[in-house]
Nucleic acid binder design. Sequence first.
RNA 1: GGUUCCAUGGCCGAGUGGCUAGGCAGCGCUCUGCAAAAGCGUCUACAUCGGUUCGAAUCCGAUUGGAACCUCCA
Length: 491
Amino acid sequence: MSIKENNLSVYNTLVGKKETFIPVVEDHVGMYVCGPTVYSNVHLGNARTFISFDMIYRYLQHLGYKVRYVRNITDAGHLEDDSDDGEDKISKKARLEKLEPMQIVQHYTVDFHNVLRLFNNLPPDIEPTATGHIVEQIKMARTILDKGLAYEVDGSIYFDVEKYNKDNNYGELSGRNIEELQSNTRTLDGQKDKKSPQDFALWKKASSSHLQHWESPWGEGFPGWHLECSVMSTKYLGEQFDIHGGGMDLKFPHHECEIAQNKAANGKDPVKYWLHTNMLTLNGKRMSKSTGNTLNPDELFSGDTPLLDKGFHPSAVRFFMMQAHYRSMLDFSNDALLASEKGYQRLMNGIALLSSLEAKKESTFDVDTWLKKCYTAMDDDFNTPILISHLFDAIKIANQISDNKASLTKQDLDLFVNSLNSFVFEILGLEDVIVDNNSDKLSGVVDMLIQMRKDARDNKNWALSDEIRDKLKEVGIQLKDGKEGTTFSVN
RNA sequence: GGUUCCAUGGCCGAGUGGCUAGGCAGCGCUCUGCAAAAGCGUCUACAUCGGUUCGAAUCCGAUUGGAACCUCCA
């Protein structure tokens, strides 16, 4: 399959503007996305980032690119700070719960996968773990050490930012400069080993309290915060690859350090396009594990939280997220979600209707132009909100066709139906959940009541027919009287 | 404190130097025994104050308010 003729442009954080997307290797895309640190349940903010990149992955594939999507699992634990007695999150959690660190890792990795599956995310092609690449991390640390861009202090290896900055630009991604950083870095305890506060650890000596540690040329220790991503992206995508993604919050220092490590080790700019997704906020503040301002997916699905009136289907939530651009901040609220859910149902109803429409002799609607607009939206840095506005236009046309106010030829109708389905299900990754609402048994019961109500209505027994309708409504079943008979929906 | 970003109609949320995004709610209509649902139509906004321009919500400056990063976080 050849690449669809397209003008995909992406917003590249590195240059601060949109650029035409041209992969390093023709027809192939290497994409690395920073995955979660698995020390607690994944929250919706995390999910947003991975859902956004899932959409990007899907669209790149749709365009015909052969994509290798790598997303890591951070299971080695990042240090809480750079102090000597620093304890990483995974060890800390393990100590609290009296569990093996890898037990924690396993538990939350499974949770992470489950949640993303519910959101209909495709799995990445490779999902490497930090603990599975200790050898490679030691090797890269040694390479950087050999090149003189890192130094050893008491069993720990630190990256020499100042020295690196002489021939490179530390801060190119986040727009910082090193002087500013030096004058503005807060003073933290236990940084006496480092030459300069902005230096960061490639390898840290393990203290006796550390549960996770490995043997290295410098003694027992564990890898630094940023090394795993440099190592694993290089290993699976090469020294230079196309897309590196992650949340905005990782821009600095994490991604900045990744660039520095890769350039120091390989002498090349590792990434062509840096893509950063914006935060999901709750009450106007960013969701964050450490501050506790979070909403967990199971609370969202069940509605078991004071924040929500009811539970929401993962696909409706995904639609809610797709209605905002991935680079915009999105605030999570009950009202916004309810509004989105209704729109989502409308979209699904329209799609169901569309597949039952009949072709006519002539077309009153220009499908090709519509389709082009859809692609233009997606090609413009994956603008899903605009795409969705076009999808609603399509739904309007579908209704018009149904009312005989518009028509499409067989060829146009097929293209229309296929394109709409492909955008909604294949690219946006939504699911048709209307069907899921109607379990066989329930619909059997309700159909019986609908028939009884019809008999009552035929006998003009309005009291009974209204009672059936209203009682059903009370238990959350909405009857819908239409020309072709009565259907129902479950709220 | 430093750096960066944002402020859009009742709500959510795109866009952007002249060409009414879209969704939800509201209102009107169609349908209906009455409703509901559904569909159709409609409501025309861009924080404040200056400036640039034939023209600014869109560019520039200031002000106010908010956010992110600077410390682990998607």
